[in-house]
């Protein structure tokens, strides 16, 4: 209940000046921005993955799904706006926090060791950065279709006769390029590692973690990131192996 209530109040209070000031200036506020934008992006990537997994079914399924999305009109733009805001907020918070963190230790240790910090938690910046680079490429590649302009010409006809963009062929053709598939796999791997820490971390940042739930939470986080990776990796692997064509 706290969770739901907090989320509603949180969204409401974004519009209140005082809270906004605290949100965007205080260290904790930036962590909330990080966590909330992270949740939105996490929900998106999971939804995105589920959508993409339709590639394993008849091509019409994914093509009609894509057609539906593309014709949502204002709805599409609303979702895009929310996602864009979340990405910008996530990156903004990351940059702000990183700069502050750098300033907080101007002279570093000559020798530094850690006791328990996980690999994922120590690589959030680099994994986030590479994932961002990938997202830009990914958008250019499949959404804007400027990398391979010929994708714009791919059309197909559904069973009911509707002519739609042939997303299925676009994906198959895209992932048949070993370099693109390779980049994709690396990026997905890093994103999974990013989620590995990010998922559990969100709970802590908004105050919903404690040591009692830490174990299950960590397991869920690990399971989620593995599933996410496996699901995403399945697509290029299947295409390269010729299971999907």
């Amino acid at each position: 209940m706290y969770c739901g209530g907090a989320a509603i109040v949180f969204i409401l209070s974004i519009f209140m000046e005082q809270t906004t000031a605290r949100l965007f200036r205080s260290s904790l506020g930036k962590k909330y921005v990080m966590a909330v934008s992270g949740v939105i992006l996490l929900l998106f990537v999971i939804g995105h993955l589920i959508g993409n997994l339709q590639i394993f079914a008849h091509p019409d399924l994914i093509n009609s799904y894509a057609h539906f999305l593309q014709n949502m009109g204002p709805g599409l733009w609303a979702v895009r706006l929310i996602l864009l805001t979340a990405v910008v907020a996530h990156i903004w918070a990351a940059v702000e926090l990183t700069l502050e963190n750098r300033r907080a230790r101007p002279e570093d240790y000559r020798e530094k060791d850690t006791i328990q910090a996980s690999y994922a938690s120590r690589t959030m910046r680099i994994s986030g950065f590479i994932v961002l680079a990938f997202i830009l490429f990914h958008l250019a590649h499949f959404t804007l279709q400027v990398v391979n302009p010929q994708y714009q010409e791919l059309y197909t006809q559904l069973e009911d006769g509707t002519v739609v963009h042939d997303v299925h062929s676009m994906m198959v053709s895209g992932f048949q390029n070993i370099w693109i598939s390779g980049f994709y796999l690396i990026a997905i791997g890093l994103l999974s590692v990013h989620l590995r820490h990010g998922f559990a971390s969100m709970f802590q940042s908004i105050g919903l973690r404690n040591r009692k739930i830490a174990g299950p939470l960590e397991k869920t986080s690990l399971g989620l990131s593995i599933l996410y990776f496996a699901g995403n990796a399945a697509i290029p692997v299947a295409i390269l192996a010729g299971f999907v064509s």
Binding site: A6, E17, Q18, I206
Partner: peptide, 16 residues
């Protein structure tokens, strides 16, 4: 986590 929670609640409460 308790501080994160209390700070969030306090910030919002104060705004309202």
């Amino acid at each position: 986590a308790q501080l994160n929670r209390e700070y969030l609640v306090a910030s919002v409460k104060q705004s309202f």
